[in-house]
Design a protein around this nucleic acid. Sequence first.
RNA 1: GCGCCCGUAGCUCAACCGGAUAGAGCAUCGGCCUUCUAAGCCGACGGUUGCUGGUUCGAGUCCAGUCGGGCGCGCCA
Length: 561
Amino acid sequence: MKDVLHELLQHALETLHRRGEIAGTPPAAYVIERTRSRKHGDFACNAAMLLAKPLGRRPREVAETLAAALPENPQVERVEIAGPGFINFFLADAAFHAELRRVFAEGAHYGHNRSGGGQTVGVEFVSANPTGPLHVGHGRAAAIGDSLCRLLTATGWKAVREFYCNDAGAQVHNFALSVQARIRGIGPDDPRWPADGYRGEYVRDIARAYLAGETVHAGRDAFTSPRDPDDLEAIRHFAVLWQRREQEEDLHAFGVDFDVYFLESALRNEGKVEQTVDRIVAEGHAYESEGALWLKSTDFGDDKDRVMRKSDGSYTYFVPDVAYHLSKWERGYRRAITELGADHHGSLARVRAGLQALDAGIPEGWPEYVLHQMVTVMKGGSEVKISKRAGSYVTLRDLIDEAGRDATRYFLVARKGDSQLVFDIDLARAQTNDNPVYYIQYAHARVCSVERQMHERGFVFERGPALKHLDRLDSPHARALLVEISRFPEGVEAAAGNLEPHLLAQYLRELAYAFHTWYNAEQFLVDDEAQRNARVALAFAARQVLANGLELLGVSAPETM
RNA sequence: GCGCCCGUAGCUCAACCGGAUAGAGCAUCGGCCUUCUAAGCCGACGGUUGCUGGUUCGAGUCCAGUCGGGCGCGCCA
């Protein structure tokens, strides 16, 4: 919709330029945006105010000149100059009717675009250690990351969901020791319990399964327990696979399925970590000091140099991260997005510095990062402390079981990532209208109900004829809904472009509001056939957009509530 | 001490990379179901956008400072 206005303005600017009326001014970075108030029309443009300064003319005067140069267009009813120099566009109803026809023509693809040009983007998210169940924070990562992938796919990208599994570090060793202790019947209160062991009850479940000789499957891997309490390597293998399976099941129940599970152990086994370090050394961005090997990360914007290889010969954690990101580059992700908890933002500069030090032609801003702040969990009016090692924390599984997948997903994705989130379990579990997701889903279900009623009463909806009578949608409430529907493509573009899925969640609430208001104001199934068909068409279009939007959030669109 | 994020209605949060009169939900109060689902709608109440300066036609948004909260600053991951 906006495109038409951009063309008109571009045309006007060129005309004025030719006439020399705005000579010498650079192409202004003007914007065309939705107005807040109907009084200001449907769209407003700030071009005149930006041009006024370099021209040394009054903004409103420039606006007049600009408006006068705008070509006629059937989509635009009239143009007004207002306020400090806004050019306000009042669109003809026909413009919104055309948009409604697009909804029907494009169906499940309405709102999508091809701006990604079919390019691949690797999106890494969750990437939890395989040492315990997923918690709320991982849930937020999953909800944000998956919605991002859906949004990127909808805007023409080929999004690949990737999970990086740290199955080779010290934490995993710790974890294996904890399981081994449990196998031997040693509990966390026992003096023989390993330092920094994982105290959670789930560790005991794993020990039990190991002793029973069970076989665990995760992804394409499988492993059968040899039941030997002394075989730490077997225990590690078994326990990691067990956790991977648990995490995959939880994520699947959450509606999140990854395309690639990338194992840190594979990276190490293939010697990629050493190769990465060697390459950095060869490029001259490393030095030895105090018995350790350092990366000169200060050459690349980090605030201090970082140890890569400790004096004991092992690597610091970020080196595999660099190797992993290099593998992303080598696997062809010319665009990559890494979604992380903000508590890891310190590693960001390090990884980017490491990548630059490789001199592999990786652009400075690669990969892009999307961070989310902490989630605080409230239960019974007080905060639940999250401590993996102590084993007391709220799992993603708990949330799904208590609040349902839809509410949990919506709740976790509906807020901007860079503010902290309070997840009130009692609220989410209450299943009342405190949960905005029901409000949106209800709008969808209501249209489905109308359709059922329509059939029961023997009315038939024919799209073709119905779309010829859209001028019967003449009430303010109907128009407001038409406007909301037409905003959807812009909402998708904004959410995908800014990597902020919460914008879409916000939009859907507004769309649902416009629908409910209209629903309460007008009867759809009236005897007047043209009137009825026009309204049913609008209702169906609203349902389509609600469904498309919910799909992008990974939330279901139920036919009944 | 240094770096990053946040501070908006009583509570939880929006505000489209500077726009016009800062918006929703919850809570509180008052209305609307013999008509397509009341998980809904309509109305009222509620604000010096933490504070102080600055930049400009215009600032919740940008800059400086300040206060408060969170996170990070390891040869931990």
